[in-house]
């Protein structure tokens, strides 16, 4: 997939592009409003990641621009402003999602994939990994075409893992994905552990290979190896 990142903080933009390019995507980076407009005039993108506070303009204005020129392009706002109304404004203007800095790359990746699924496959797109097939919008998971029953949290963890295959996901990032960043439960790592344990059991009970690897001291990784 082809992404455009509009972010004036070069170090952050670089992290984003490295993370996405590693997965075989094309992630282009611009650091200003004007550069973003130029790029949008020439190339087509599947998703744009837009910072609101740009040195030469407001990222929110880019949303209208994109809506006009490339109505198929998904839009995710990434902003340092934890502003409760910029989010609403952004979503009103037609952005698909909103992420507040700082965020996990894996979270951003998962959001991008979710936006793309909704945009390009009417939300019915299934995602497959080995014997596992999930329908994220319908919240259904299958192993070898047989539906397995997962709790909401187990399902969310599975989607998160599949969105970030072959990536190391920290327990912290999984916890934040499920509970959001205002829920600061001090036992959350234990709960992540329990849910992953149950998920693994349910998958293997259904005859699935154990793809979920524990990464020592860190978290988990979904991988075929």
């Amino acid at each position: 997939m082809k992404l455009l990142t509009v972010e004036d903080e070069k170090d952050l933009a670089e992290s984003i592009s490295i993370y996405f390019n590693n997965e075989g995507n094309i992630c282009e980076v611009v650091n200003s409003y004007e550069d973003a407009r130029t790029k949008l005039n020439i190339y087509e993108y599947e998703c744009a990641l837009i910072d609101i506070m740009l040195p030469d303009g407001n990222g929110l204005d880019l949303i209208g621009e994109i809506k006009k020129q490339q109505p198929n392009c998904g839009i995710i706002i990434i902003s340092a402003k934890n502003s409760l109304d910029d989010r609403i404004k952004g979503l009103d203007l037609g952005s698909d999602d909103y992420l507040t800095k700082p965020f996990y790359m894996s979270e951003l990746n998962s959001r991008v994939k979710s936006v793309l699924r909704r945009r390009f496959f009417d939300g019915n797109k299934s995602v497959t990994f080995g014997e596992i097939k999930i329908y994220p919008e319908e919240k259904k998971a299958f192993v070898n075409d047989k539906e397995i029953s997962l709790t909401k949290k187990e399902f969310e963890i599975l989607v998160y893992l599949i969105s970030n295959t072959r990536r190391v996901l920290t327990k912290e990032s999984i916890a934040e994905h499920i509970w959001g960043d205002f829920a600061d439960s001090y036992d959350k790592f234990d709960f992540v552990y329990t849910h992953v344990k149950n998920l693994r059991k349910k998958l293997s009970d259904a005859g699935c290979k154990d793809y979920i690897r524990s990464v020592y001291g860190t978290g988990y990784k979904l991988s075929e190896e």
Partner: peptide, 28 residues
């Protein structure tokens, strides 16, 4: 607000660092 940006940068770099193969346990 300005603080959020360097925090975001550090957080993203840490995550990239996590993706390196063969991190020893001390580093982790």
């Amino acid at each position: 607000h300005e603080l959020q940006t360097p925090i975001a940068v550090i957080k993203s770099k840490l995550e990239l660092l996590r993706q390196k193969e063969d991190l020893d346990s001390d580093t982790v």
